[in-house]
Computed example of a mutant assay.
Amino acid sequence: MQNILILGGTGKTGRRVARHVGAAGRVAARATGFDLGEPAGWAPFLDGATAVYLVEPNLQAAARIPRFVTDAVAAGARRLVLLSAPRAGEPGHPLHAAEEAVRTAGVGWTILRPNWFAQNFSEGPWWPGIRDGVLALPAGAGRVPFVDAEDIAEVAASALTGDRHDGRIYELTGPRAVGFAEATGLIAQASGRKIDYVDVAPEAFVERQTAHGVPVAVARLLTGLLADLREGRGADLADGVERALGRPARRFEDFVAGTAWHRDLS
């Protein structure tokens, strides 16, 4: 019997992973009493877990994952799947140590490095702008191969429930790069509402975030990632979804068509 522990099990990918693995999954989230920042409380969640889906919601605290990996393997976990990020294999990246911990844990492992989520527009940090009709980001005319969280979750679930993905690192993107103006235009067309994309200066974006309570370090990290897009970085396509699942990645247009914008924007 598989017993799969899903960190962030109520989040964008975690709840989708939980749906894919069904009764084999157990959700570890604040809603179930789990706190990644409290190691003393990990043991009851790790008890009996044969596989673990690892998610770090706070890149400024990513040092927690290596310790959690050690405890998970000691508790009997034999498969680890890490939700990582592009370029996390490079020293200095916040998730580099997490990747190294997974790769050297002595058990089966898979690392997922998804590009920006398509769902950021519908249930993530860009949703307020979409809802209010103006999405303001420091991304310029940058283009992104947005990846659907459903694809990420399906790859994760496949890796958690079988061994054919062991030792693999999957770079996950959508099938084509989309600009933010085009993305908001597609959403506007689907929802029947006017939605504009506005490019803002990086420093202005940092100031706006910090004014809403975002820590300065986090605001600068996020702004830097978005500002990289305006320089043309982050637009490269990868075939990770197809290699893992044997089918093409879901198109951004399919994500837009499958989202209940009329309900959400009413």
Rank of each mutant, 00 (worst) to 15 (best):
F68V: 06
A29C: 13
A88G: 02
G129H: 00
E123Q: 07
E150W: 00
R67H: 15
A156E: 06
G9I: 03
T13M: 04
I4C: 07
P248I: 11
G246W: 00
R79E: 05
L112E: 05
G9E: 10
G246H: 01
L95N: 07
P215Y: 05
L137P: 12
R251E: 15
G185I: 05
V107T: 09
V55I: 03
F68Y: 11
E182S: 07
I152W: 00
A77H: 08
G106C: 03
G124P: 01
P39W: 11
V17D: 07
A260V: 00
G11T: 10
I65R: 08
Q209C: 01
G162Y: 11
V216A: 13
L80N: 11
S122T: 12
A177G: 09
D35Q: 10
F34D: 01
L221V: 07
Y197N: 14
R220E: 14
L237P: 08
I187G: 00
V69F: 12
R19A: 15
G14C: 02
E207C: 06
D163E: 13
G167L: 13
G8E: 12
G142L: 08
G234Y: 04
T10G: 03
P94F: 12
T32P: 13
V107S: 01
F146W: 08
R164C: 15
T110I: 13
G108P: 00
Y53C: 05
D132K: 11
H262Q: 14
A31L: 09
A40H: 02
E90K: 12
W42K: 07
W42I: 05
